[in-house]
Design a protein around this nucleic acid. Structure first.
Lengths: 196, 196
DNA sequence: CTAGTTATGGAATGGATCGTCCACAACATA
DNA sequence: TATGTTGTGGACGATCCATTCCATAACTAG
């Protein structure tokens, strides 16, 4: 009965995400979002409810995709668990280095800007890191079962260290540290993990 | 001959810094800075030139102080170099955990918000990390000379790893990871560094 | 085909924001 | 003490922003 929407919701969310990603929350205007999405203000507000609500939606989707992406990279059989972990760490270094515009990661940027004052953002960021951590713990445990990492080590501690290194690579990449440095951090982190 | 200033410049910069720190660059209004510093707009603009210039000044001072602080913690005789390194890493974990308001670090926040579009901020952030890295390299070399770390390891690689872990602790702390986690990352990082 | 419902997009609104301006104040020198 | 130079602080203007409103368009169930 109702008139159907003319726009593709996920395309609109992607365009809005790019705006927030590039200019930050406070630096993004709804006019810019409307222009980028080619939607009128009425449609924008009618469909998404306002700037804050729209950001929460975008941020939530981004976090979900990030976790899903890590999951896809880390899940698999025990005998290739270390291979997957190494590929993931190297991949983060490579993609961070490839981001020559230093756009960084929306999760990091949004958390830095808003976690202090927006409990919803803070909670989503924390949950995201917890989920990634859990995936890392599972992979480390698989490495231990297969004999690629010291079974005496606490898998949660090793996973925590890896998570911190990953976030550190992200932060330093955004500041402009070069590819060689980022790859060196990745390799060093992998090489210091305790072997059996 | 001229009328002298009534305000204390460093106190004004500190108040301005707190505003930027809490609300970010785009989220901070010059009215708020004027109120926080108890200066009129005329004095504010007359003395510091504008929002962007003021931020650059604040950011620059913050970076200089950060490097100076790390330098004070890490410089000293070789026989206590590892002790100082451990104290520094643990101290970052402790102060991050103690920041229950999740205000984080202005260097990280400013870089996340502005590095992409403000070359001055990007350059200052990069220089700051480079300087901290150099201090870490010097300390690691001292550890190696004194026999606390494997002399066969590349000190720049170990220092890079430590720097990434430090920035990772910062990023994860801002997202709300708890004290136990942050301390566990710090301890694990220290324990995996290669001994002679 | 028609009526009812929602989408659309741009104008309107009320408030905030950056930076300027200016009349006045305060100090140091001569 | 008189004078010149700079600091002070608040009002002001032009612009910008988030959000609302509304006349019109588009679609579908009956």
């Amino acid at each position: 009965m109702p008139r159907p929407r003319k726009f593709d919701e996920s395309a609109v969310l992607e365009a809005a995400r790019d705006q927030f990603w590039s200019a930050g929350y406070a630096g993004t205007t709804m006019d810019a979002v409307a222009a980028a999405t080619e939607l009128g203000k009425g449609s924008l507000y009618g469909a998404f409810g306002g700037k804050q609500e729209l950001f929460h939606r975008v941020f939530d989707d981004y976090c979900a995709q990030a976790v899903q992406g890590v999951g896809r990279q880390l899940e698999g059989p025990d005998d290739r668990a270390f291979e997957r972990l190494a590929a993931h760490v190297r991949g983060i270094a490579a993609s961070t280095a490839a981001d020559t515009a230093h756009r960084g990661c929306l999760l990091a940027k949004g958390t830095a800007e808003l976690a202090e004052h927006d409990p919803a953002v803070a909670a989503r960021a924390l949950r995201t890191f917890d989920e990634i951590e859990r995936l890392l713990v599972a992979d480390v445990e698989a490495c231990q079962r297969h004999g690629d990492l010291d079974p005496a080590a606490d898998p949660r501690r090793l996973a925590g260290l890896v998570l911190a290194v990953l976030r550190g690579i992200e932060a330093l990449g955004k500041a402009g540290k070069d590819e060689e440095f980022l790859h060196s951090v990745a390799e060093t982190a992998l090489s210091v993990l305790p072997r059996p």
